[in-house]
Computed example of a mutant assay.
Amino acid sequence: MFTIEHDFDATVITLIDEGDAPLNEDVVIESHDDGVTLTQVDPDTDEVMVINLSMHQLKELRAALDLPEGVYRVRRAGETDEG
């Protein structure tokens, strides 16, 4: 299950783990103009773990989900090979 909320400066998506135990803590994803922030509480320490992704990293992640094992580069707009 998940929720979507549109705030003034971000879209907030919360992924809620369902199913058989053990369940993972909720993952909160905040999408801003300059990137995405993922947060999740570590159940062992009760600390909030934070991961920041640039929009380019998010684009690479999206591409990686559909590719086989290997090394890849997603080109940025206007980028060319040199040499």
Rank of each mutant, 00 (worst) to 15 (best):
P22S: 08
P22A: 14
E30V: 08
G70K: 09
D26S: 04
F2H: 09
P22Y: 12
P22K: 12
F2C: 09
D34P: 03
S31N: 11
E60H: 13
V71W: 01
V27I: 14
V48Y: 08
T80E: 09
E30H: 05
V27T: 06
I4F: 11
S31Y: 13
G78H: 07
R76L: 03
A77R: 06
L67T: 02
A64Y: 13
A10V: 09
V71G: 11
A63M: 10
D26H: 07
I29W: 14
V36P: 03
D17Q: 10
E82P: 02
N24S: 14
T37D: 10
E47L: 07
I29Y: 06
E25C: 14
V48A: 15
L65F: 13
N52D: 03
L61H: 07
I51A: 03
V71N: 02
T45D: 11
D33T: 00
T3E: 09
L23W: 05
Y72R: 07
A63V: 09
I51C: 12
V27N: 07
T45G: 12
E82S: 01
T39D: 05
G19W: 10
T11F: 04
M49D: 03
D9K: 04
R62I: 01
V74G: 11
G19Y: 05
V28C: 04
I51N: 15
V71L: 06
M49H: 08
G19K: 13
L65R: 15
V71F: 01
D17T: 08
E47N: 15
L67W: 00
L58R: 05
P22D: 11
E47S: 14
T39E: 03
R73Q: 04
T37I: 14
T45C: 12
I29L: 13
E30I: 01
L61C: 04
E79V: 06
G78S: 01
E30D: 05
V74Q: 07
L65Y: 15
R75W: 05
V50R: 15
